[in-house]
Design a protein around this nucleic acid. Structure first.
Length: 707
RNA sequence: GGGCGGUUAGCUCAGUUGGUAGAGCAAUCGCUUUACACGCGAAAGGUCACAGGUUCGAGUCCUGUACCGCCCACCA
């Protein structure tokens, strides 16, 4: 780029060089951090607290553009409130992210030709910890690059000892209150990863599977899973089905593939008369619906598939076969014996899979695990939202919130993975001890770890040191929880439930839900699609301020935003515009002087004042996208294009008083514009502020917000 | 099957309590004008998905329809 022309009069030398965000940003961040004002303890005049707990990023990779969005939104709110004189705490953190990190690390092991199943538990844990801590450190640097003005002195990690202590205390209290129980219940079992998953960690995918119509004693029934027949403990029909009325309550005996079968026929509303033949085989151990039928009718559950997805010793000659292998074998044998009436090859149904890996089909399996009773907790969460103790932005997400609360099942918090917080439960001969290992021999600790959302669900009060911490008293309930709508159920809901349960207070007053960042064509960003936007790379090319503006403008809460490089570039141009406005103004004035203001200039100041009010109102109501756009247009279309242009004539005119008034006005508008823009574009505004000859505060970051 | 959202300029989206439609990018024309060519000026571009209704007035409120997207859900 060509060098700029020399500046006239006494404009600061920095303006001799073009605007260079990449070169100036690290130094500015350092200045902020060293000032100590990220820490609210150093905001001496501030009284009323304003708190945001940062959603702790998973420490298993580098930050993506979704992280950049949350950093931008939260930093915007924090900087705005800090300038307004609040005692602002933005508490950063990192999440060990149990299952997800373990998955990432297992993949890494796979590439190296290793497997966690061939490693000692401790060895695997140690390696994963090292991997996580390394990522965490890297991530902290990236958060700084994005301008996050969070209080690093209060940073928390989900595995910090004090966090674990709090998590344990909550578990104990839930147990004492009978809200957590040890249950033998169906869980979603991953044979690949050897752990159960909560209902939220599953998703359904459509699949075409053969539907076998098999003869079963006197009946014909339709099933996609003939291989589970060895675990059948009943046959069910609908109580209103006249076709089978005579059989209800009777036992049927017939020869099965591996010997005689004797099953009771039960009547249950669950059976749909119109599906298949209206007859269902009940396999309680391998189907959650069948399990419930079995509960209602007092039927036993017989496990026939083991944790590795192989048929067990109860399955005669099929023992040792994998599920699909066994299915084919059973179907073939049924056919040979004339027991297969027909096969519907067009049948499409939904199957449960691992939400992180669609190829990982989850097997329903009965296991002894810890479950949290959701109903009582959900009720309090509903009340809090209903009576406005928690506000949700956008409002329509409230409906989704309520709808979800209606069909809740108990929450399985046991994970059979190594990477996580061990569950503080000990067993001995059917006895259970919670909290600490009891004295005496033979107590065995539960080998499982907590679902990571159980601990992160306690994040707001755990990070603030509940119950005795000084910070808890000052900063709880927090002001706003800003996060993506995609984790409304996983996280926000759990924080509300556990926060209310444990502290008796809501964890936050407002919930601001942002959308997903998509590419220019509105397509979901993913590595496999090759449309990844690396936020750190963008900040290096266009500046963090440009990236932030691109993420803010046009981004309404709860809606996905599309982002593309040209948009970011557009705001780099805006940063440059601001830079040059400052250059012009500072070439022409070295600060405000006492002098009368002309009527024309007073109108300009009034106009600016109206903008201050509007922007402030927008900020208070989370209309940040409007605030950003208004400032953009004011600065570019009004200040630069009109006011500044018409000033050229005034400044070189012969009327000294008018010229002085205009100089003061230009300086005033620049000053205020920098303040209003600072939460949005902290770096360039601070850089210019540093060049102002007269200012109320050395750091723009803690200058007073207009209005 | 239930719920939620969307449909506005070529593309991506704003439009805060109803008052004659806006931005960015792209595309057109013209400009080295003493802050900025990372710039300036000018012009162009829309039956606001469709059909009804309320209103003096509807992109905005109500009813319905269509299409797109997302979430939830135990028909084997």
């Amino acid at each position: 780029m060509e060098p700029l022309k020399p500046v006239r009069s006494g404009a600061p030398e920095i303006f001799l060089t073009p605007y260079d965000p990449g070169g100036m940003e690290p130094g500015i961040y350092k200045k902020w951090e060293e000032s100590g004002y990220f820490n609210p303890d150093n905001l001496k005049d501030a009284k009323e607290p304003y708190t945001i707990i940062m959603p702790p990023p998973n420490a298993n990779g580098s930050l993506h553009v979704g992280h950049a969005l949350f950093v931008t939104l939260q930093d915007l709110l924090i900087r705005y409130k800090r300038m307004r004189g609040f005692k602002t705490l933005w508490l950063p953190g990192a999440d060990h992210a149990g299952f997800e990190t373990q998955l990432v690390y297992e993949k890494k092991l796979e590439k190296e030709g290793r497997s966690r199943f061939k490693m000692e538990r401790e060895e695997f844990y140690k390696e994963t910890l090292a991997f996580t801590l390394e990522n965490k450190k890297f991530m902290e640097g990236q958060l700084r690059q994005l301008g996050a003005s969070c209080d690093w002195s209060r940073e928390k990690f989900t595995l910090d000892p004090d966090i674990v202590t709090t998590v344990y205390a909550t578990f104990k209290k839930l147990y004492d209150d009978s809200l957590v129980y040890r249950g033998e219940r169906p869980v979603n079992w991953s044979t690949k990863y050897q752990t159960s998953l909560s209902d939220l960690e599953t998703k359904t995918v459509e699949r075409k599977d053969p539907l076998y119509y098999m003869k079963y004693g006197p009946f014909v029934l339709a099933t996609v899973r003939p291989e589970t027949k060895f675990g059948d403990t009943a046959i069910a029909v609908n109580p209103n089905d006249d076709r089978y009325k005579e059989w209800v309550g009777k036992e049927v005996e017939f020869d099965g593939l591996i010997g005689p079968v004797k099953l009771k026929v039960v009547a249950d509303e669950y059976v749909d008369m119109t599906f298949g033949t209206g007859v269902v085989k009940i396999t309680p151990a391998h189907d959650p619906n069948d399990f419930e039928v079995a509960q209602r009718h007092g039927l036993p559950a017989v496990e026939v598939i083991d944790r590795f997805g192989k048929l067990n010793e109860k399955c005669g000659k099929y023992a040792g076969m994998k599920i699909l292998e066994a299915r084919a074998a059973v179907a073939k044998d049924l056919e040979e014996k004339g027991l297969l009436e027909k096969v519907d090859e067009t049948y499409v149904h939904n199957i449960l899979v691992n939400y992180k890996n669609e190829n990982d089909i989850l097997e329903p399996r009965i296991m002894s695990q810890w479950f949290i009773k959701m109903a009582p907790l959900a009720e309090r969460a509903r009340e809090a939202v209903e009576n406005g103790k928690i506000r949700i932005f956008p409002e329509f997400q409230k409906k989704i919130f309520f709808h979800w609360l209606e069909n809740l099942r108990d929450w399985n918090i046991s994970r059979q993975i190594v990477w996580g917080i061990p569950i503080p439960a000990w067993f001995k001969d059917g006895e259970i001890a919670i909290g600490e290992k009891p004295s005496g021999e033979d107590w065995q600790q539960d080998p499982d770890t907590f679902d990571t959302w159980f601990s992160s669900g306690q994040w707001p009060y755990a990070t603030l040191g509940y119950p005795d911490g000084k910070d808890f008293k000052t900063y709880y309930p927090t002001s706003v929880m800003e996060t993506g709508y995609d984790i409304l159920f996983f996280w926000v809901m759990r924080m509300i439930m556990l926060g209310l349960y444990r502290t008796g207070e809501v964890p936050f007053r407002d919930v601001y839900l942002h959308g997903l960042v998509r590419d220019a064509q509105k397509i979901k960003i993913s590595k496999s699609k090759g449309n990844v936007i690396n936020p750190l790379e963008m900040t290096e090319i266009y500046g963090t301020d440009a990236l932030r503006m691109a993420l803010l403008v046009g981004n309404t809460p709860g809606m996905d935003i599309s982002l593309a490089e040209p948009k970011i570039k557009g705001y780099k141009l805006f940063s440059n515009k601001l830079w040059n406005i400052a250059r012009f103004v500072l070439e022409n004035t070295d600060g405000e002087q006492d002098a009368p203001v002309t009527e024309t200039d007073q109108k300009l100041l009034d106009e600016l004042h109206a903008l201050e009010k509007e922007v402030t109102a927008d900020m208070e109501n989370y209309r940040v996208y409007l605030a950003a756009e208004k400032l953009y247009h004011y600065v570019w279309d009004r200040f630069a294009a009109k006011i500044l242009e018409e000033s050229k004539d005034i400044l070189k005119g012969s009327d000294a008083a008018t010229a002085t008034s205009r100089r003061n006005t230009l300086y005033g508008i620049l000053n205020t514009s920098l303040k209003l823009l600072h939460p949005f574009m902290p770096f360039v505004t601070e850089a210019i502020w540093q060049q102002l000859p007269k200012k109320e505060n050395d750091l723009l970051m803690v200058a007073k917000w207009p209005v």
